[in-house]
């Protein structure tokens, strides 16, 4: 996020950090106990699904907090139009976790914008741990920024041709004050306040740089995909749970480092 500020814990309880091989690469959002919404390009087909870690209840990337939970990925569903009609079109992914999220004051789901959402006169925010300057500075704490929506015709005009920004996309950004999303915010949310209920209207997708005033950030338009999201949430089986015998073995395995930590803390 460029031009934003540190977010308070619990202010964006649906924010997710997607890690790949131990590093934050993208954002995402909690949409229910088992499902995360993110960008398809964060989960490109050549990536190993087992190398992903999903963190919820996180504000400072350096520390696991009291509300932080960690999850492995069970399944990734990329939208069938991803990269079909546009190099980054259909840039949306559903990520099913191996186990369920425990909701708390700091970990809650966001609402998905319905197909007929009216985006006039709404206040919208983006959040993420992406770069805070084009020079590559990364934040420790989750950043938030208020961004105005930009109409599709204006955005198409700014990008030079209608085909560059398609109807499954949405543009937002404060082009006068250089407040926008940047690399590492991908997959994260654009959320708007509708009478104290927060609806996700965008998924951070792409843009031409982060600080060129004439090129606002482009998001996947969530309302365009909401029926697809709803279909897979309702029709995908829950992940199979470990057998009791296996659970006992896992418990025995993790108890060793926990015991070691307890001993070390006494030294």
């Amino acid at each position: 996020i460029v031009g934003g500020m540190d977010a308070l814990e619990g202010k964006w309880p649906w924010q997710v950090s997607v890690h790949y091989r131990g590093f934050h690469i993208c954002g995402g959002t909690i949409i229910d106990e088992y499902w995360i919404l993110s960008a398809a390009h964060c989960f490109d087909r050549d990536k190993n699904i087992e190398a992903f870690d999903i963190y919820v209840g996180l504000v400072d990337l350096r520390f696991v907090g009291n509300h932080t939970q960690w999850f492995e990925v069970n399944k990734v569903i990329l939208h069938p139009t991803y990269e079909v009609y546009h190099p980054v079109g259909g840039d949306i992914a559903l990520v099913q976790l191996k186990s369920r999220i425990v909701f708390s004051d700091s970990v809650l789901p966001v609402c998905i914008a319905p197909p007929d959402v009216n985006l006039h006169n709404v206040t919208c925010w983006s959040t993420g741990w992406g770069l805070i300057s084009p020079q590559g500075r990364v934040p420790e704490k989750l950043q938030e920024v208020r961004v105005p929506l930009i109409s599709l015709p204006l955005c198409q005009l700014l990008y030079g041709h209608p085909s560059h920004v398609m109807s499954d996309m949405l543009c937002a950004g404060d082009i006068w004050n250089v407040r926008t999303v940047c690399e590492g915010d991908s997959g994260g949310p654009l959320v708007c306040d509708f009478n104290h209920t927060w609806l996700q209207v965008g998924v951070v997708s792409w843009g031409r740089g982060c600080t060129y005033p004439m090129y606002p950030a482009v998001y996947a338009r969530v309302s365009y995909f909401s029926k697809w999201i709803q279909y897979y949430r309702e029709h995908t089986p829950l992940p199979s749970q470990p057998l009791p015998a296996l659970s006992l073995m896992v418990g025995a395995t993790v108890s060793v480092p926990v015991t070691m930590l307890a001993v070390l803390s006494m030294l």
Partner: peptide
């Protein structure tokens, strides 16, 4: 970078909580 740690100390609420609501309100 956060470390891999499957912990869940969070206070459980009804899993069917309403979406889009948070417990702290901005001004």
């Amino acid at each position: 970078v956060a470390h891999r740690r499957p912990l869940s100390e969070a206070r459980a609420l009804n899993p069917h909580v309403a979406c889009g609501h948070r417990y702290i309100q901005g001004k």
